[in-house]
Amino acid sequence: MKGLLVKDFRLVLKRKQQLLILLVVCAMIAFTSDGSFVVAYAAGLAGILGLSTYAFDEHDNGFPFLFSLPVDAGTYVKEKYLFCVLCDLAGLAAGTALFFAACATTGKMDAFRDSLVYLPAYFPATLVLILSVLLVQMKFGIERSRLVTLLLYGCLFVLSAVFVKIVGPLDGTRVAGQLPEWMKSDWFIVAGIYAIAAIACAVLFALSLRVMKNREY
């Protein structure tokens, strides 16, 4: 596991220029837009950066060599998940720092304080998205995964549109109004997001493990 982490950190650090550009883009977003969007954006981008190490592993028929090292499918999947978590957390921290800096310099600290409770929720939300793409990549390979991901998101979009057409748009305020008082706390909502994400991650992990264990090279 340690060797794989060293490999992935070094792979990410090979792209210092890209990292710098992403940081500058995030800083521009933080200072030119209102709200905490930059936090979600930075967490998502950092997660994608972590995810990209899978593409490097697969590139140039890299897997046969990788799995000739002291690595088995279980260790590989665990490490990849851990690495994506670390990248996502680093992005969340960087995004939060930029958001704080932007609020502090523009005198909008109230907005920062109001958002603070929701910021940790960006982590599980972006992580589930990243890990679901990782699963598709493991199953179909990098090339085909692009098409499969596009198709999956296309299907989700169509299903959502059909749902809205049949049920009508969801009124968040009305739904919230029907919830019991204790469920309306911000912390409860964030904890709920974490709980749902934890279940999703566990399912994704089990599926990823199965895919990698069954692969041949």
Binding site: V6, K7, R10, K14, D60, G62, F65, V71
Partner: peptide, 22 residues
């Protein structure tokens, strides 16, 4: 292996660090 190795982005220094950890 004949057709598979470390990422071409790595240097010998990276290879050393990875092998040390592996």
């Amino acid at each position: 292996l004949s057709d598979s190795m470390f990422s071409p982005l790595f240097t010998v220094e990276d290879v050393v660090a990875i092998l040390r950890a592996m």
